[in-house]
Design a protein around this nucleic acid. Structure first.
Lengths: 352, 352
DNA sequence: CTGAAAGCGCTAACAC
DNA sequence: GTGTTAGCGCTTTCAG
């Protein structure tokens, strides 16, 4: 029998976990209790610090836990406690950096509070595929943070037990579902007003799916700014993209250019759309911002790296997510905090 | 007592879920059994189609389920079955589109198979913050797909019960942990060889944290291509960025330019790095690709929209994620499939 | 301060 | 085809 080599910490340790299934059954609380010579109740107490335990007893239990590599079974614990410390995040679009940044914020505060994130596609996507939010129905999660639009919510919510629910970015002013968001309408007014101040009169809107409240609100802001300036709202200057991918921005921008008297500037309701549009404009031989100015929305990381750097409305994406998580967590803790509106700002760079 | 108004389905239904906590206790299987006048075993049978049930009885049960709005409690079910249908995804960087696309692939196949995704930051991040992967230790999840690097894995894996584990993109050739990935080294050879074919002799490497195996492998490919062409490897032409954000690309590219005899081209191991580099080059008055050519890696969605459009190595990001999920799921189903290597390709566009 | 015992809601033998 | 029963692993009274 060869001598056991000391473990080399630098060697790949990974071969440990090749098994397809757990072979050795994990130690239960009973095993720990037996090993330590106490009752399972006592083990539970030291595990949760729920009741004072004699220092000496505690040490014995802790030693047993250590020796057996014991970890509490979450299913059993959750079954008793009725909570999982899992938060569901409804994510409409993994590809859009806005959502990535927001999830980052959510994850950050959730983890700090001992919660984990379950990620799911948006309800409408699920519905389209004939899936339902089983995970939600089944109360696996303690609460939900939704980045999805409200349009499909009715269907989802109808059967859902009243589960704490928070909306992020998206919100319905008429509803009482708490949300964290910026003032989309005012932000759009700011963006368009900036264009007006720069002398633009023919300002196009590159909009998004109006199932999203923010898309409607930004459009409303666009129209309001125009109206205030005494400009007419020309329907042919309003283009709703079929999605927020770069490609949809290009597509919609192309349509804008095809008109007899094209705009001198465009307000895109998303940076990804704006970037796609700029690409399309340049392909068509237009210079940005000289021939056509564009302002975006979100201030995604790329917007300052892109050329021309984007003039855009900055949303505090990370904070939006973080605050949404805070809001939900506070509710789970029994509080009843209200919605929060975070500040946006116009970042002027090169594209307008 | 006012007459009960019929529910208006078009009105915002969202006010239903404002409560901070479930007020009405959800119906249990007992309630359903009682309501239907059968035993809980029968209810369980119709719920899971695990054993034949008299058609008439089944209908009664289904009616009861419907009437009570019953949903199985996942905790209890998981406790019995010993599985949660939850997959943990270890995500190093939410901001990098490569990871977003990959997660998209994972989510897509996982959902189709009835699994949900728990998202967690990378182990190294967690460790830095003093957290451990409790969720993993506690066997909440059935398996894990890791996009994280191997460097910090030892620490993580040591205490982890042997949980099915799959690596995506990242892999250690010496380990037996199954993975799905492209051949990073060959891909790098292809990229650099392309540059060489275009007449470049002074080719820089914009590398990434070599705790990642792929970073080491791509560097190895870079060096191999150079060596094969009889070119010397100049250490000052190799720059390791501090991260993969655009900003780190700019930073590292700046250092490259500061040299007495700067490169005529650079191979960046990530599109985000490449884009940051191009930005830096232009700021310094260099034209891309005329003065300095750059080829990236990944083929993120942005790479074709960026100007100049990126010449890059295309990784099948979505498929990488999808295959990783398939691999894991097959293992969970009792199989023992091996690693898979997917195909990469060089996409020639404008930047080189 | 500690132990015994009663479940949490479900699945899976095992009887009938 | 259906009911009874024994747990899964944990938390939590309730006694002592």
């Amino acid at each position: 029998m060869p001598a056991k080599r000391p473990t080399d910490m630098r060697s790949p340790p990974t071969d440990v976990n090749v098994g397809t299934h757990n072979t050795t059954k994990a130690a239960s609380i009973n095993a720990v209790a037996e090993y330590a010579g106490v009752s399972i109740a006592t083990v539970s107490r030291v595990l949760n610090s729920s009741k004072p335990v004699n220092a000496h007893t505690r040490e014995r239990v802790e030693a047993a836990v250590e020796a057996l590599g014991y970890r509490a079974n979450m299913f059993a614990r959750s079954l008793m406690r009725g909570e999982s410390h899992l938060l569901l995040v409804l994510m409409p679009d993994f590809a859009n950096p806005f959502f990535s940044e927001t999830v980052k914020g959510i994850e950050s505060v959730a983890r700090r509070q001992g919660y984990n994130i379950v990620l799911s596609g948006a309800p409408d996507t699920l519905a389209r595929e004939g899936h339902s939010l089983d995970i939600l129905y089944n109360r696996l999660v303690d609460g939900v943070i939704s980045l999805a639009n409200y349009h499909d919510l009715p269907r989802v919510l109808r059967d859902v037990p009243n589960l704490p629910w928070v909306s992020c970015s998206e919100f319905n002013p008429e509803s009482h579902v708490p949300h964290v968001s910026i003032d989309h309408e005012q932000a759009a007014v700011d963006a368009v007003q900036y264009l007006i101040n720069r002398g633009h009169r023919r300002i196009a809107l590159l909009g998004a799916d109006e199932n999203y409240a923010w898309a409607r609100q930004r459009r409303a802001g666009y129209e309001m700014a125009l109206r205030r300036a005494g400009l007419v709202i020309e329907p042919q200057l309003i283009r709703i993209a079929r999605g927020t991918d770069y490609s949809f921005g290009m597509e919609a921008a192309g349509a804008l250019l095809a008109q007899e008297s094209p705009p001198t500037s465009v307000f895109a309701v998303s940076d990804t759309l704006a970037i796609g549009a700029i690409k399309a404009f340049r392909r068509a031989g237009r210079r940005v911002p000289e021939d056509i100015a564009v302002v975006g929305f979100d201030n995604i990381p790329l917007s300052q790296v892109f050329e021309p750097a984007l003039t855009t409305i900055a949303q505090p994406m990370f904070e939006l997510g973080a605050e949404a998580a805070n809001l939900l967590l506070e509710r789970l803790a029994g509080g009843a905090p209200g919605s929060r509106t975070l500040q946006h700002s116009l970042v002027v760079r090169e594209s307008a």
